[in-house]
Structures are given as structure tokens and as C-alpha cells.
Nucleic acid binder design. Structure first.
Length: 271
DNA sequence: AGAGGTACCTGGCAGC
DNA sequence: TGCTGCCAGGTACCTC
């Protein structure tokens, strides 16, 4: 489900309800996520004030004085705000309750996500420390991509989806950004020119920013914290459009598997 | 060091 | 109405 824009949308949706609030209870209904939800989570959180919420790549970080919750939505996860009386559904695995009566409810049917705890500085955590720069910062640009890609043999789509290179670019927005930049997804990353990487970096920033403005992309089951879908699907130019006409040249959009992931592109507009 | 494959899991859908 | 097989927005971890 969620790439960077969907995670950012989720964060913005939950933040106003729980930022600065005191945690009153934690309920773990199913600890069997990608890694076990730590049994100490409740002990560590209850009584703590939620001091800050932050997104890092596709992770959501909940900061308290005691430590930090590290949360990932995997492929099918979502977070929503409800009140304690709302009956949990089948895949609602974790609740964090607040003194103001709000509940942060974590749902994840496939359980590829995680809810973890660290009492050390979060940037030292093994899931966070290897991550590359945020795509929407000045640190991330074409020069950076060009320098990182030299002598690499992988394709450019896999390259920009590597979280050690840049965080948050997932399967939808990788296809979309490459289409906007006119670069074939299968092109070897080490053979893309600096000029083309400058365009690609710009396109990545644009497509992610536009998607955030639209509340992310709902293909199937992504919902915002208030339960509404994201509206960026209508702006997708290649993703999930195999066999349909390219909006630029009218050629049929192609689909192929690259790095075990569905990849969409226009063979006329991209080279 | 980097590339490629595998594993984790449920649900929805197409085809029979 | 089943059943089967395939597909899905992610990514750590393993081997080569």
C-alpha cells in the first residue's frame, strides 16, 4: 500500500489528534507482525507524552521522553484515529490510547509492517541508520544520484527504489517518475547521464509532492486517517495503465516485470 | 560491494 | 459455488 506520499498523508491525518497527548493504554491484539511487537511497549508508553510525530522514508516515528515507536505500514497497513468504543476489526492489531479519548489504531492484513520500540536515539536503530536522504530535501538531487550510480549494474528503477540510495520511492512512483523523466526503467543506472539524473531527481520530487497534495494514491485499500481515499490515482500516467494509450503519444502503455515488480512505461516516450 | 532471489502474509480476482 | 493460481502499494536477509 503505502509509499512516501501515503505515509505522509497518514502522518498529517493523525498528528492533530494525538500530538502532545498523554498515552493512557496500549492494546496488542496480535503481536505477529514482521517482527514481534515488543511486550514492553505498554510499559514503556503508558503515562508518556507524545512529544513529536515524524516521517522518515516510509517509517512513522512517535517520539516520547522515554524512547521512540518505530512504525511501518508494510504493503497493507494503515493507521486511523478512532475512539475507544469503536469495535476493532479483524486486522486491527495494535491500539495506542490517549487520555483525550482518541485511539491510534494500527491495521495490517498482511502483517508485513511493524510496530517497534527503541530507547536509543532513533537514527542509531538498524532499520533507520542505513537509509539514504529524503527525496524532498535539497540533499537529494541529480548530482547525488549520478555520483551514487557510477559503476552500478542494476536498472535505474531498482536503483531509485533502493532505500539506501533514497528513501520512500516505491513501485508506483518509481514508474511515474521515470515516465516523467523519459527514462526507460530497465536502463542501467550506471549509464544514465548527469543531465538525465537532474531531470529524474526533479521528477521524483514533483510526483511525490503532487501525490501528497492529493492525499496519496488509493488503488485498493489505502485510506487516510479519516477513512477517505487518496485522489492521486487519477493523476497516474503509466502505473496500472497497461494496454491503455499513453497520454503523450497515444502508444499503448507496456507492462513488464523488473526486479520481481510490475513496471509500467511507454516505449516511445521513454528511452 | 553489489546484485539477485527468497521469504514473510492475507485477500481479491479471473478462470475453470 | 467452490477451488486454484496469480497478483498486490515493502524490504530485510541470505547467497553468490
Amino acid at each position: 500500500m503505502p509509499e512516501l506520499p501515503e505515509v505522509e498523508t497518514t502522518l498529517r491525518g493523525i498528528e492533530p489528534h494525538i500530538d502532545g497527548q498523554i498515552i493512557s493504554n496500549v492494546i496488542i491484539r496480535n503481536k505477529n507482525l514482521r517482527w514481534p511487537v515488543p511486550g514492553t511497549l505498554k510499559k514503556n508508553l503508558v503515562g508518556q507524552k507524545l512529544k513529536q510525530l515524524q516521517r522518515r522514508g516510509k517509517y512513522i516515528l512517535l517520539f516520547t521522553d522515554n524512547g521512540t515507536v518505530i512504525l511501518h505500514l508494510g504493503m497493507s497497513g494503515s493507521l486511523r484515529i478512532c475512539d475507544a468504543k469503536t469495535t476493532p476489526e479483524k486486522h486491527d492489531h495494535v491500539d495506542i490510547e490517549f487520555k483525550n479519548g482518541k485511539v491510534l489504531r494500527y491495521r495490517d492484513p498482511r502483517r508485513f509492517g511493524c510496530v517497534l520500540w527503541t530507547s536509543k536515539p532513533v537514527e542509531e536503530h538498524k532499520l533507520i541508520s542505513p537509509m539514504g536522504p529524503e527525496p524532498l530535501t535539497d540533499e537529494f538531487d541529480g548530482d547525488y544520484l549520478h555520483a551514487k550510480s557510477r559503476k552500478r549494474k542494476n536498472n535505474v528503477k531498482g536503483f531509485i527504489m533502493d532505500s539506501k540510495i533514497v528513501t520512500g520511492v516505491g513501485n508506483i512512483y518509481a514508474s511515474e517518475a521515470l515516465f516523467r523523466a523519459g527514462i526507460l526503467p530497465s536502463r542501467q543506472s550506471g549509464r544514465v547521464s548527469k543531465e538525465r539524473y537532474q531531470l529524474l531527481a526533479k521528477c521524483i520530487k514533483e510526483v511525490l509532492s503532487e501525490a501528497i497534495k492529493q492525499g496519496g494514491t488509493t488503488l485498493k485499500d489505502f485510506t487516510r486517517a479519516d477513512g477517505k481515499p487518496g485522489y492521486f490515482k487519477q493523476s497516474l500516467k503509466v502505473y496500472d495503465r497497461a494496454g491503455l494509450n499513453c497520454i503523450v503519444c497515444k502508444q499503448k502503455i507496456k507492462q513488464k516485470t523488473l526486479n520481481q515488480r510490475s513496471t509500467y512505461y511507454c516505449s516511445q516516450c521513454q528511452h
